[in-house]
Design a protein around this nucleic acid. Structure first.
Lengths: 139, 139
DNA sequence: GCTTGACCTCAAGTCGACTTGAATTCGTAG
DNA sequence: CTACGAATTCAAGTCGACTTGAGGTCAAGC
């Protein structure tokens, strides 16, 4: 019986009401009813929003996110597809780790020009070899 | 003496000439000279572009990227700042890992509704507790 | 000497993800 | 009952990161 209206969802999720309306508009979340004009959200929406936030911070588009967690926020999507996504994430994690290491190296390496430091080049090269395919959309 | 013109840089970096011009316009890279009208890029630009690509795929904006690697592509920025960026990356890696684990769990968990599966909730909750600050710009 | 192709500039367009604003409608507290 | 604040719709605006297109330049090869 405890439905939330948009203001409460906004407050608890840290998202703006306008964003929530937008998410509903594109079908990423859905309100269960209306009280008058007001949307009533089921409490699960908070969990869904957390997933959405995770996906966003991972760099996925809303489109990709709605691909990962189907309409209701918990998918009955092919396992293989999900594993594929997970593998993609693994690749991305690798890239981030490479960038992090590069940054740390740059911070600590005493060489005058990084462009000539072999360690630096190795780090950057290593990252280049791990081509994710998602990084360059190529539309 | 071996300067590259934009077509070659484009081909070797996988970026479009228009993107390279844009990057130059915003000061992310720079051509060293002109031959006639044509930009001449120094070979180091390829390395810089790799760094840029890494940063992008890590979800950083071009602005943030140019913050990480100063004007010339190799920064003389305060160490503390770079370490901070690296730590930020660590947090993001953590979030990605959580998302990946969640995805894998969802793929393999036989429970009827994930929203009620305790493992699922634990995974999502764990991700929520690691607030990066970068994930929600809050302009 | 002329064409071709790779480059140039600059303005305008696009796409995703929202935000903002104006005009309106509810529901509840006094 | 009425006023208030919180919600609503809808159109338009914004921002980042480019792309596209029109119109122009230039060196090289035929």
């Amino acid at each position: 019986m405890k439905f939330l209206d948009i203001g409460e969802v906004a407050e608890r999720s840290g998202m703006r009401p306008s964003a929530l309306r937008y998410y509903e508009e594109i079908g990423l979340i859905s309100s269960i009813a209306r009280s008058g004009l007001r949307r009533q959200f089921p409490p699960e929406v908070l969990l869904q929003l957390k997933l959405i936030a995770m996906g966003k911070s991972a760099g996925f588009s809303l489109d990709e996110i709605s691909g990962m967690f189907g309409r209701n926020g918990a998918p009955d999507l092919p396992r293989a597809f999900l594993h594929e996504k997970a593998d993609e994430l693994d690749r991305q994690i690798g890239e981030l780790a490479a960038l992090r290491d590069t940054l740390r190296h740059v911070a600590d390496c005493p060489a005058p020009s990084h462009m000539e430091c072999p360690t630096f080049r190795r780090l950057v090269d290593a990252a280049g070899r791990r081509r994710s395919g998602r990084s360059t959309p190529k539309r």
